[in-house]
Design a protein around this nucleic acid. Structure first.
Lengths: 240, 240
DNA sequence: CGCGGGATTGAGCCGAATCAATGCAGGTGG
DNA sequence: CCACCTGCATTGATTCGGCTCAATCCCGCG
């Protein structure tokens, strides 16, 4: 019993994840149905339109959600980091692919037992609801990016977003400080699919930002941003 | 009392709207705080980042949700028809503009009293949650459109979407039947802002679809689709 | 050392944007 | 009733940003 609770107690995402909403007693109920899974990079976690029998918290790594057209064109519609929640409650199939963008560690729950707990713990459902509202806000923000921003603005926006999320997933990057250094969680190909661009255009824009001195590259994935405000200005974050 | 209940009983959207989740007793509680409002076309209902003190069901008309960049570029991020719910629960400000796309009739509820009811009626919160999940799915669908579809595919997709929603808002259009006739709820300018295109491109693509015989125009807003499957094929609705 | 996958760079092209003119319907006033 | 305006939609000419195709480059790895 105590050990079980400790398992959660020592969990890196204990307080930020949906579990954060639960009392100790409730947490134990959730813990009882939880199972840790490791997924290697590139593997599909949930397939579009296919029923999935589980939900999960992301403990480490990154998961990308994407939609694919019959001819292969692809769009990434969401990116999940710890402590995000994976899975569409109420509806047996998710309307997109979920794929491990890196090696991923999940804390997963069987679908029906989790949904049962949802009914019992109003806190849990409420937390998931707020979560979903935030995802909706984020995806609408992304619609503005996809529909109206230039390639340069798109890439800058992406870097700003990663830089701010990087704080929550470790990486050198202080909240107050106007400086960031982080690893890109996606390949150029995935970045392109997230931004509605091609690989080549992403690459060119990164080169351009580098030439402008707005960012520095330590490696193809390692980015340093000396002045985040400058990058944000280029991203034309919407105001008004 | 009875009259109050009858007010809801005779409501056109009684069963589809969030109210549909409520018992008679609960409905009465909601009814007590409800107020009908009419909004003329073009008027702002909620302003980006400004606190709003109410939520509402859309009774008639259409409301567009949009984001605007400092330089005026605009993206419509959502379109609400009866019996959709308007407003972001839990968070005093909505992160976008809500504007009447046509004359609109609302059934509105004061923010704090409604949120109080949310706590008392789990059904109501649950219903709103499912609503939000559907909006999230729809907005991700739209991300694919914005990021990866051609102008022709975008316009075709938009028409398909309107044709299918048209069923729920009256208009000649049978569920089984492979034929539709409806009014565009948006001007060309708004359509462009919804699809991430310019007015001119939207116009050209509509002309093209007309030339191909896929649609007919009764007026600039009145559309006839003889064969919806054909239009859907052009829209390249994602499979797989 | 050579191989292979990801990333960069370059040349040319094309689809959608821009700029500009014209068309069209509804409303208003002479 | 017609002339005129005004707001929306269409059409045309031209430009340009990002895509396509293709050639390296880079780096880790067998």
């Amino acid at each position: 019993m105590t050990t079980e609770l400790e398992r959660c107690g020592s969990c890196a995402i204990r307080h930020q994840a949906v579990c954060g909403a639960l009392s100790d007693a409730e947490l134990m109920g959730l813990n009882r149905i939880a199972r840790t899974r490791k997924i290697p990079a590139g593997q599909t976690v949930m397939a579009d339109r296919e029923p999935t029998d589980f939900f999960a918290n992301i403990v480490s790594g990154a998961v990308k959600l994407s939609k694919v057209m019959p001819d292969g064109r692809q769009q990434i519609v969401g990116l999940l980091f710890p402590p995000d929640f994976l899975g569409r409650t109420y509806g047996t199939a998710t309307p997109y692919y979920a794929e491990a963008a890196s090696d991923v560690e999940l804390c997963s729950f069987p679908r029906n037992r989790f949904e049962k707990l949802l009914g019992e713990f109003p806190n849990l459902e409420h937390r998931l609801f707020e979560n979903t509202l935030n995802e909706l806000d984020a995806s609408r923000e992304w619609m503005l990016l996809l529909g109206r921003k230039t390639a340069q603005e798109k890439v800058a926006s992406f870097l700003v977003m990663i830089a701010s999320r990087a704080r929550s997933i470790g990486c050198h990057s202080n909240p107050g400080l106007n400086f960031a250094r982080f690893e890109m969680p996606l390949s150029r190909a995935d970045t392109a699919d997230y931004l509605g661009l091609t690989i080549e255009t992403v690459s060119r824009q990164i080169t351009r930002l580098k030439a402008q001195g707005v960012i520095k590259l330590e490696s193809s994935r390692g980015i340093v941003v000396p002045d985040i405000d400058e990058l944000t200005a280029i991203a034309h974050q919407e105001r008004d």
